[in-house]
Nucleic acid binder design. Structure first.
Lengths: 88, 88
DNA sequence: GGCGCTTCATACCCAATCGGTATTGGATCG
DNA sequence: CGATCCAATACCGATTGGGTATGAAGCGCC
């Protein structure tokens, strides 16, 4: 699992659409699909239901979404903390 | 910044020695040195003081260490949460 | 003071990963 | 039943990551 995958996952969850999420992330659709799939493989559980209209979060996905956001927030906090201290 | 870099950083901080940390992480010393340096570069602040006896955490490093551990703990929590729910 | 040891850093190489383009497969709707 | 809109797959070039060999610098001990 990588931090990029977490950002990708959050984007797809919010857009409910791989193509739109890819645009927002400034990458192409296929690599994004792949990363989402790899994340699911690594977790051993599907996070989305694939529909002809896009991606719908499964309950496991909802659970993971909250954790992913917390992790990304913690990363931002860590960077800010060090930079703030260094600035001093 | 990657999760691997955070694990590497915690190992080096705990061992206060790149060589020992590398052994513990099952990678070679030079790649580990590089990742630590890249992390410092990206954060824009040195985290360790290099001494002839090893690595000593700087105050910025102490601050970052707490954050790094929190992030890694959050990652473990996220994995466990999804797997637990999927197991059900 | 010089030799040797220990430590992290650098140089170079190869393998793995990542993202891009082109295309396919599948479901829905007119 | 054909057009359309999805995500998924195949393949390729570029980037990144780790390994081996080597260097540079500080400390300790004769």
């Amino acid at each position: 699992m990588s931090l990029a995958q977490l950002e990708y996952f959050v984007a797809v969850a919010e857009e409910a659409h791989v193509g739109r999420a890819a645009q927002r992330l400034h990458i192409a659709q296929p690599p994004l699909s792949r990363q989402i799939r790899r994340l699911e493989d690594e977790l051993g559980a599907p996070l989305f239901e694939r529909t002809p209209r896009g991606m719908r979060l499964l309950p496991e996905g909802e659970v993971f979404l909250a954790h992913a956001r917390a992790i990304l927030r913690a990363v931002g906090d860590a960077q800010r903390a060090v930079r703030a201290r260094h600035g001093v």
